[in-house]
Design a protein around this nucleic acid. Structure first.
Lengths: 195, 195
DNA sequence: AAGTTCAATGAATTTATATTCAATGAGGTG
DNA sequence: CACCTCATTGAATATAAATTCATTGAACTT
């Protein structure tokens, strides 16, 4: 393997380990030394690959911002499918590939801002999570696709619930293994309501 | 005011400010100096009232453990009321009194363990959040009160959603002011399902 | 009123962790 | 092979935050 490939690979390894640690222990409580140990490297070497802990975290959030493709197009006959598709995709990937789950949770953390530098928080917040869903809900309510209620509050509740579930999944590997998994329909009923 | 009352009052002030800060910034990122400043006291004085930052946090979690009264008794004709009552109470108090909201979120954080010493995490985990609801759901499913599905997974999803909503509320004071609030029925439908 | 206690302070100390750096040697290149 | 580059290390340094401590003065006790 060429030196350059080697380097890219180790850089990727750091990123992967850092993501998992940041998600499981939070930003402040994740020590550079922890990431180094998880990656079998010396502490000093971390700074060869990344300028600082903060910049490493910022890079992860940046990847999250770029990789977040909340469906923008609306080609669904039934607007419920907009949410259904989103959740199905999310669960499918999140359960198959811890990376996706962790990335999702990292973004929640960064948006919440627990111990995260402010400019990073703003970066994470730039992915608007509530406005668009609220509009879809508002439009769909006229045709009875969604339950009655303040569209913002509905979008907020739905989105907070999804985040809550993902965060718990991220720290509950045993649940994932047991197969007792959340179903997207259950969460959809938050906004659809009982028929 | 007597010296003793004075002391009790200032101690309480520290606790109140610490709770809010821990919830909004997380354990590690909340500095003793922040709590001191919020309480208009010197840093040194913090250590007159509390042995250490860790012990202060532990005390908060202990209060949470003792104050958590997940309804143990089941005198409901319809088991859905078990959840409905719980949520109604929770929202009622959490919206009226930030203390309740923050305490709830602190417990979630402590259970999740972000940057929290392990023995504190275990203390927080001692309040079992999933087992009992899962049993209620399992029993109720036989009579059609709840939707089909793995009772553990349903309880997990419901509980994670509640936590997610509360955590978002705790960092979204503007939402609370706007009045666009989550309704307990919306979350109940996670486990009740569409009829 | 004199003496005692203890809340309160801010500066000094300790500790933990991020960050820097000089030294080493294994790949790569002519 | 001789030279150069740069990945890698571990020790040294810087920094920020927790914790300790000597000192002060106000509130209680007698």
């Amino acid at each position: 393997m060429t030196r350059e490939e080697q380097k890219a690979q180790r850089r990727q390894l750091i990123i992967t380990n850092a993501l998992e640690l940041f998600v499981k222990k939070g930003y402040s409580e994740t020590k550079i030394g922890d990431i180094a140990k998880a990656s079998n490297m010396s502490v000093g070497l971390m700074f060869h690959y990344f300028e600082s802990k903060e910049q490493l975290y910022a890079e992860l959030v940046k990847m999250g911002v770029e990789g977040t493709n909340f469906p923008q197009e609306m080609n669904f006959e039934n607007p419920l499918d907009y949410f259904k598709c989103f959740l199905d995709e999310l669960f499918k990937y999140a359960l198959a590939e811890p990376w996706v789950l962790y990335m999702f949770v990292l973004m929640s953390q960064a948006r919440r801002g627990e111990g995260v530098p402010e400019y990073i928080r703003e970066m994470a917040l730039s992915v608007n999570q509530i406005q668009q869903p609220a509009e879809v809900i508002e439009a769909g309510q006229k045709y009875g696709y969604f339950r009655e209620g303040n569209p913002m509050a509905l979008a907020f509740t739905f989105w907070s619930s999804v985040q809550g579930v993902m965060e718990q999944l991220a720290v509950s590997p045993e649940l994932i293994k047991s197969g007792a998994l959340p179903q997207s329909d259950w969460l959809i009923d938050i906004i659809r309501g009982a028929k």
